[in-house]
Design a protein around this nucleic acid. Structure first.
Lengths: 349, 349
DNA sequence: CTGTTAGCGCTTTCAG
DNA sequence: CTGAAAGCGCTAACAG
């Protein structure tokens, strides 16, 4: 701040809002060095004398130098940014995934750019384009369609699919064992003696929902209990007639319901409450995803818990590994869910 | 995809992973035009003949051209990226703010880059540096300290403070009327006849907490009820002794408690449940922030509701306005909270 | 209406 | 150990 030439100084004291950002050249000049040397010093790469480095570092600090990420990315043809696209940031499940990703990325000095696609494949492709344009070092996504991942990978950007797998090309992925989770949930109900177990699942082409549906079926098969088709309801995310569809399922008088994600679990829970029905006396309920409210309501909701934050961490770690070695064979990490028993399940009344 | 020259085609069919991204020159060449014309055509800026434009557009589509955002940012010295730094993405309050921001930004064709700072000012500054490096068009933050905003603004980056104001320089902001919300909450309790109303607030230097504390005081003053200092507990976010502090407040036997944010509301709620005390018979409770669980538990929690998503939208809108006109005087938008009455409050038993 | 030219700020050989 | 030079991909004057 206190420079030699007070009046004609070319530094920021001239105007309150400075006209041009300070560049590497500026700090080089201030230290009487060239830009190349300054670059080496500030990035601790290549040879720089201790003296020069010290002067350069001091100058950078004094001038408040912040490297221009665009210039660097342009030159290096890749950035330290990782794109993340989730279905709905407002859903605590996705928020937790993002939290796990962010934590891991931050530790590795990468930036997370978060985009929410509202489960809409057009928005998802848009997001992919954005990351392509940014030359993101990689992208983690909870896929809605398979085109976005294809686009990215075709352009050489590493992709990790999270929560479900949709890519048609082999690709890293981190998922939960949906089949086993759903099977455990359903088996629990069957073991309690339920014979009319309703299923409420999302109507998607996602592997997660397919697995949950299969798990429900497998448990029935193993128990020798036939499935009543009218008790299986599949509802598209954000469908406008969600409430009616849920009501209709309840009208079928199942003695228990397995709701295959946290949103649907909340929907049935509300429908049950609206009817004044009692949990678990009138109907038992098992959810999927252990979000906070499930433990706070009375009775608590028995549910298939997922290590959500850990799923996010793993996805980030996988991407980091691939950044080191783009030739690694694609690996898919499958984490185990666990059935959390609470008060919403009991033998049929 | 079906081109004229099958074997010697210079397009991506050659290798599965293409060696170099397709640039503007590539599409220009493919259309027999210069890069500048291609730029004009693809950005619909300046004069381009209909014919040329068509050929260029076709070439771009065929080659799968995606503009390099870094090059553009470098040239234009600003990007279409807006940085957002929130305290904790896992907290539904901040997630909703982010959702509102993202929605608005997306409509204006800006990208949101989200960073969570865990209420740590060092991480907040880090985030500011990142956005500075990216030449973000602006930054929206729920501030922890005042240095990050100062740094940004010193470098000419527009800042909008959200949820609270900490900047020492005038700066756009979107906040809730904390004083009024807290006052209404406390007055409600006082009107019910409570005389020992505990306050549980965050110990920060944030305007939000200051306003809530003052509102609590103002309500007492207006009602002519003296405040019992032992009933006022302030706990730093993430403090390790949070549970004990809350227990100690309960030990003071307040007949009602006003918890000044959603996290603390949950903490007291849990403490009350652990003791087997009944809401509102043994103690009344009013929260702040209307997060979903408050309506789902039994009895529901009376709380000061905030238009959270709208707060986010407004912040984004303010930033967009400033992007159009950097000379606008800083404006602060103050939204009104509303007291949501539910079952957790009643006259003292 | 179109092409040439220059340069955004940085990194990276390559000579000294 | 250091500097000169070139160029990443794009846009914006400015001539034609």
């Amino acid at each position: 701040m206190t420079l030699t030439a007070p009046p004609a100084s070319d530094d920021s004291a001239t105007a309150p809002t400075l006209p041009r950002a300070v560049t590497l050249r500026d700090v080089a000049r201030a230290a009487g060095m060239s830009a190349s040397t300054a670059s080496r010093a500030l990035n601790s790469t290549g040879y720089v004398s201790a003296d020069a480095r010290a002067r350069l570092l001091a100058a950078a600090a004094r001038l408040g130098y912040v490297a221009n990420a665009s210039a660097r990315t342009l030159k290096q043809r890749t950035s330290r940014t990782i794109g993340v696209v989730v279905s709905a940031i407002g859903n605590p499940f996705y928020a937790d995934l993002a939290a796990g990703i962010e934590e891991t990325l931050r530790a590795a000095e990468y930036q997370m750019v978060l985009i929410s696609d509202n489960s809409d494949s057009a928005q998802e492709i848009d997001g992919a384009r954005t990351f392509l344009a940014m030359r993101a070092a990689g992208v983690i996504m909870t896929p809605v369609g398979s085109d976005a991942a294809a686009l990215l990978m075709r352009h050489g950007i590493a992709v990790v699919e999270l929560d479900r797998q949709l890519a048609k090309v082999p690709c890293d992925a981190v998922v939960i064992d949906n089949h086993r989770g759903a099977r455990a949930a359903t088996a629990h109900l069957l073991e309690l003696g339920h014979r009319r177990v309703g299923l409420l699942a999302a109507k998607t082409n996602w592997t997660s929902d397919a697995g949950r549906l299969q798990g429900y079926r497998a448990a029935h098969r193993a128990a020798g209990v036939p499935i009543e088709p009218r008790l299986v309801t599949r509802i598209a995310p954000e469908a406008p007639d969600t409430v009616e569809r849920v009501e209709r399922l309840l009208d079928e008088r199942p003695t228990a319901i397995f709701a295959a994600n946290n949103v649907l679990t909340e929907q049935v829970w509300r429908a049950i409450r609206r009817r004044g029905a009692r949990l678990p006396r009138d109907v038992s309920l098992v959810g999927f995803d252990d979000v906070p409210w499930m433990e706070m309501v009375e009775p608590g909701i028995t549910t298939v818990g997922q290590p959500t934050v850990e799923l996010g961490r793993r996805a980030a770690r996988l991407l980091l590994l691939r950044a080191d070695d783009s030739e690694r064979p694609p690996t898919v990490v499958c984490l185990q869910p666990s059935l959390v028993l609470r008060g919403s399940t009991s033998p049929p009344g």
